[in-house]
Simulated scan of single mutants.
Amino acid sequence: MEFRYLGNSGLKISEITYGNWLTHGSQVENDVATQCVHAALDNGITTFDTADVYANTKAETVLGEALKGQRRESLEIFTKVYWPTGPGGPNDSGLSRKHIMESINGSLRRLQTDYVDLYQAHRFDTETPLEETMQAFADVVRQGKALYIGVSEWTADQIRAGHALAKDLGVQLVSSQPQYSMLWRVIEDEVVPTCRELGISQVVWSPIAQGVLTGKYLPGQPPPEGSRATDASGGADMIKRFMDDDVLTRVQDLKPVADDLGLSMAQLAIAWVLQNDNVATALVGASRPEQVHDNVKAAGVKIPAEAMERIDEALGSIVETDPGKTAENAPKRRPS
């Protein structure tokens, strides 16, 4: 496993982070989830990412149980706050001081730890003054409940404003967690340059585009039974933007590139996002331990420039690069 600094902080995290978004507490049994976490640990992964909203808090509970008995100082545990949790009352979502303070306490309890290494704003809250949000995050840090703060799916302007407030408050906003893959490159024109300037790293999610970049979805054929594209509980909705025959055909054209590099399609996809020097880590999930063993082999891989060009040629115009997609996909008001 290779390690990178998170932003301009002194914190090192593993290039591959184990994330439990669509699996723990919902899609897989708890014993299998624990096996996946242990496979991550066995392969040198020290960084784990979750959120209070995943499986309505169950994912944090499963991760806390799976990490029980590990040396806390040897781990980096990330979680997030914003989306609705609990019964969905008027203050059960967003980035108000009330919700942040109550949410961090709940997350720590479920994760069975005294602190998280990184506490992230899971989206931008249009209904709470940013000053209130950043003051609450600063207080969480000062209370020792989080060491660093980050954001997820914020625009470049939002990141710049949040970073300025954090700096005034004496706390470190060190990370941005956006979707990023060969197919979804919307952060490259605005978010990445802004973050480079400010000393903020990307913690990228969905580097294999919800499984599309593994090549298992074939054009003109129904998706494999049990795959994310058949998951009516949420996975199918997330992946549908890529389930187009033109996209799937071009993804198949990546196989010769992967073969020439001695990589699986998934390893190629993960290694590709890690070529971006503003990316600190790639989030990978798993429903089986074998997937973890396969994905970690992307760590430390250097893709030659010629192969990077072949990837761009193979994908052509299907790549999404519009920086406006971040704002377009963001919630316009606090969810309930």
Score class of each variant (00 low, 15 high):
Met134Pro: 00
Ser14His: 05
Asn329Arg: 14
Ala136Pro: 00
Gly86Lys: 02
Asp245Pro: 00
Gly226Tyr: 06
Lys325Asn: 13
Ala286Lys: 02
Gln221Trp: 04
Gln143Ala: 14
Ile104Met: 03
Ile104Asp: 03
Val28Gln: 06
Asp42Thr: 10
Asp312Phe: 01
Pro207Arg: 02
Ala136Leu: 03
Ser93Met: 05
Ala51Arg: 07
Asp189Leu: 10
Ser96Phe: 00
Lys255Tyr: 07
Asp157Val: 13
Ser74Leu: 15
Gln172Pro: 05
His163Asp: 13
Ala280Cys: 07
Pro84Tyr: 00
Pro256Ala: 14
Arg310Tyr: 04
Lys240Phe: 12
Glu29Met: 09
Tyr54Asp: 14
Asp92Tyr: 04
Met265Phe: 01
Thr281Ala: 15
Phe48Cys: 02
Gln120Lys: 04
Gln35Trp: 00
Leu41Ile: 14
Arg333Pro: 01
Ala236Asp: 06
Lys12Ser: 14
Pro222Gly: 06
Met134Val: 08
Asn105Gln: 11
Leu213Cys: 09
Val171Asn: 02
Ala236Pro: 00
Gln267Arg: 08
Gly44Cys: 06
Glu60Phe: 09
Lys167Asn: 13
Ile77Lys: 02
Val62Ser: 01
Ser336Asp: 11
Glu131Ala: 08
Met265Thr: 01
Val116Asp: 03
Ala121Phe: 03
Ala156Ser: 15
Ser26Thr: 13
Asn105Val: 05
Pro87Arg: 07
Leu263Trp: 07
Asp125Ser: 03
Lys240Ser: 14
Pro178Ile: 05
Ile200Arg: 03
Tyr217Asn: 06
His293Val: 10
Thr230Cys: 12
Ala280Arg: 03
His293Ile: 09
Phe3Glu: 15
Pro222Cys: 07
Gly7Thr: 09
Gly94Leu: 09
Arg71Met: 10
Val28Lys: 01
Cys195Gln: 04
Glu127Pro: 04
Trp21His: 07
Gln179Ala: 13
Ala164Asn: 11
Gln291Gly: 03
Leu22Asp: 09
Gly106Cys: 03
Lys325Asp: 12
Val203Met: 10
Val116Gln: 04
Pro207His: 09
Trp184Tyr: 15
Glu132Trp: 01
Ser175Arg: 04
Lys12His: 14
Asp52His: 03
Ala258Pro: 01
Arg110Ala: 03
Ala269Phe: 05
Val247Arg: 06
Ile100Cys: 04
Gly10Lys: 09
Asp260Asn: 14
Ser14Met: 07
Val257Asn: 08
Gly144Trp: 04
Asp49Pro: 00
Lys167Ser: 14
Lys240Asp: 12
Tyr180Gly: 12
Val140Glu: 06
Ala307Leu: 09
Arg71Cys: 08
Trp154Leu: 14
Glu132Lys: 05
Glu65Val: 10
Gly285Ile: 01
Ile303Met: 10
Ala266Asn: 10
Pro222Asn: 09
Gln179Met: 13
